[in-house]
Amino acid sequence: MVPVLGVIFSTGAVPFNGPSLVPFAGIIIGGAMNAHSLAGRRAFAALRDDHATYEAARSVGLVRSDAIAEIVHHLLPEALVPGLDQTRTVGLVTLPGALVGVMLGGGTAIQAGAAQVLVLIGLLAAQTITVAVADRLIRAGRLLPPDLAAALRP
């Protein structure tokens, strides 16, 4: 969230004040939290279910992070699907919140559209960064529940 909000506010695309910060930060934080919880749930469930695969990978000489990656690397991109689906349907099926908010606040249609595009790009960027960081932390064993930390010992 910090890199995305930093870019949004440092470029001057959105003024750095309370009425701008609260909705943009709230939307970006909410999207990042959603992606993080989906990534964690999928990864932890896979690590619990495929413990034999982890042990097999370790037995052929893979280090802990590579053995974990063998199990979770193909699952983590699924955490980005809700954000991609939302981006695909905005304006066609749903009325996006940023667009409506800017219009109700007295902005022009161009300003509303620009705000919505900025929100969607920011959401996708924040979710992608969040899932990539979660992947690194899970592989390093720093973001594992206690039962998995004990079961996937180095």
Rank of each mutant, 00 (worst) to 15 (best):
M1E: 13
V2Y: 15
V2E: 15
P3T: 09
L5P: 04
F9D: 02
S10N: 10
V14N: 01
F16K: 10
G18A: 11
G18F: 14
P19D: 14
S20Y: 12
S20P: 06
F24T: 02
F24K: 00
A25L: 10
A25H: 02
A25C: 08
I27R: 02
G30K: 03
A32M: 10
M33F: 06
N34L: 12
H36S: 08
S37D: 08
L38S: 04
A39K: 00
R42V: 00
A43Q: 00
A45Q: 12
L47P: 02
R48I: 00
D50F: 11
D50I: 05
H51S: 00
Y54C: 03
E55A: 11
V60S: 05
L62F: 14
A67I: 09
A67S: 09
A69H: 14
A69D: 11
I71C: 07
L76R: 00
E78T: 07
L80T: 08
G83N: 07
L84K: 11
Q86T: 10
T87R: 06
T89C: 01
T89A: 06
G91N: 06
L95I: 09
G97T: 07
V100N: 06
V100K: 14
G101N: 14
M103V: 15
M103P: 11
G107H: 09
I110R: 12
Q111M: 09
G113N: 12
A114M: 15
A115S: 11
A115D: 13
A115N: 10
L118K: 07
L120V: 14
I121E: 01
G122F: 11
G122P: 09
L123W: 08
L124P: 05
L124M: 13
T128D: 08
T128Q: 05
I129N: 00
V131C: 01
V131F: 01
A132Y: 10
L137M: 13
G141M: 03
R142F: 05
L144S: 00
L144D: 05
D147A: 03
D147V: 01
L148E: 09
A149F: 06
A150L: 07
A151Q: 05
R153C: 02
